[in-house]
Computed example of a mutant assay.
Amino acid sequence: MTLYSKIIGTGSYLPAQRVTNAELAAQLAAKGIETSDEWIVSRSGISARHFAAVDQHSSDLAVEAAKRALEMAGKEPADIDLVIVASSTPDFYGSFPSTACIVQRKLGMANGSAAFDVQAVCSGFVYAVATADAFIKSGAHKNVLVIGAEVFSRILNFEDRTTCVLFGDGAGAIVLTASEEPGILATKLHADGSHSDILQVPGNVANGAIAGSGFLYMDGPAVFKLAVSVLEQVAHEALDKAQLPASAIDWLVPHQANIRIMNSTAKKLGLPAEKMVVTVDQHGNTSAASIPLALDAAVRDGRIKPGQHVMMEGVGGGFTWGAVLARM
């Protein structure tokens, strides 16, 4: 019997505080920094984003998204035998204990299931799904909870308008289960560390404090150039692996970073704009959470239907990129 992994539940969560471009522009103006709704929308397609409350951590957002995914899947926390959390903003500064272990505790999972974090920045969710898929196909695990969760507002420099207007907070989750029916059809992952300097938080821990900067730094033009070149390539690699043409894609769910990158990718794949799920306008760039947030939105509003082919792909710091082709 051939074993597959299949998505049986999706869930998402956005913090209560929604910040529009106009509201953010007013906050920045108080610091003498000029920006506007028109400036932000024209460069990114973003109109609003959500910011976590002071007492909310990535695990808190992750737990809410996980509960909704579990409910859709008809599963209890005790049914899950592996938790994978993709995040660049973990609960703890030293990245341990892992956010996945904190999520496990907050969900009340006392079943001894495995739990760990994955760090591939904005490609994190794709990396996590590929990892979960391999575990399920190997027979090592049966039900895997995969979560992307971020509180990027904690690492934004609100004196740098080129980055602080782009990012938001949120979490998305899926439940993958072992199945005889094809689900995840193909995955493909890449990285190129020679570009590690174009998107990073250039600080490290020294004597219990940050040495360097704890704020996100991005070379926007360099990231844009790399992103548009690799996303089409990796999508075709996943399609080739699954022996399917690009025309078989029912929905493209790309990393929600910049509408221009997203539109360019869809165009290169020969897909009409109406086949691409877009949430960047309301969520901003939520890094590892962006793909599962968009996926859940389209599943719950009925756009994505059982049996359809969904291409999920992301690109992020590292430099990392990857794609997952799934049959829902």
Rank of each mutant, 00 (worst) to 15 (best):
M1S: 05
T2P: 03
T2L: 13
Y4S: 08
S5V: 11
K6N: 04
K6D: 00
S12V: 00
A16E: 15
Q17M: 13
A22D: 15
L24C: 00
A25P: 07
Q27S: 12
D37K: 04
D37S: 05
E38I: 03
E38T: 06
I40S: 04
V41C: 03
S47L: 11
V54I: 10
H57K: 11
L61N: 01
L61P: 00
V63T: 06
E64W: 05
E64P: 00
A66Q: 15
K67H: 07
L70G: 02
G74H: 11
G74K: 11
P77I: 12
A78R: 12
I84K: 11
I84E: 04
I84P: 00
V85A: 04
S87R: 07
T89I: 09
G94M: 15
S98L: 12
T99L: 12
A100C: 13
A100H: 10
C101F: 06
R105S: 11
S113C: 15
F116N: 01
V118D: 01
V118Y: 06
A120M: 15
C122Q: 07
V126F: 09
T131F: 13
A132I: 10
F135N: 04
G139D: 06
H141E: 05
N143Q: 09
V144T: 05
V146K: 13
G148N: 10
G148L: 06
A149W: 11
I155N: 05
C164F: 10
L166C: 02
L166S: 01
F167V: 05
D169L: 08
A173K: 14
I174G: 02
V175S: 00
T177G: 02
P182A: 07
I184C: 02
L185N: 02
A186C: 07
H190V: 02
G193M: 13
H195A: 12
L199R: 07
L199I: 13
V201E: 00
A206E: 15
N207H: 11
G208K: 15
D219G: 00
P221A: 02
F224V: 00
F224W: 12
K225N: 03
V228C: 03
Q233T: 06
V234F: 06
A235F: 12
L239T: 08
A257R: 08
N258G: 02
I259L: 15
R260C: 03
I261C: 01
K267G: 00
G270A: 05
A273P: 01
A273D: 14
T279S: 10
D281Q: 15
H283V: 12
T286G: 01
S287T: 14
A288N: 05
A288S: 11
L293M: 02
L293W: 09
A294E: 08
R300Y: 03
G302T: 10
G307P: 00
H309S: 08
H309W: 04
V310W: 14
M311L: 15
V315W: 01
G318V: 11
W321K: 03
G322W: 05
G322C: 08
M328A: 02
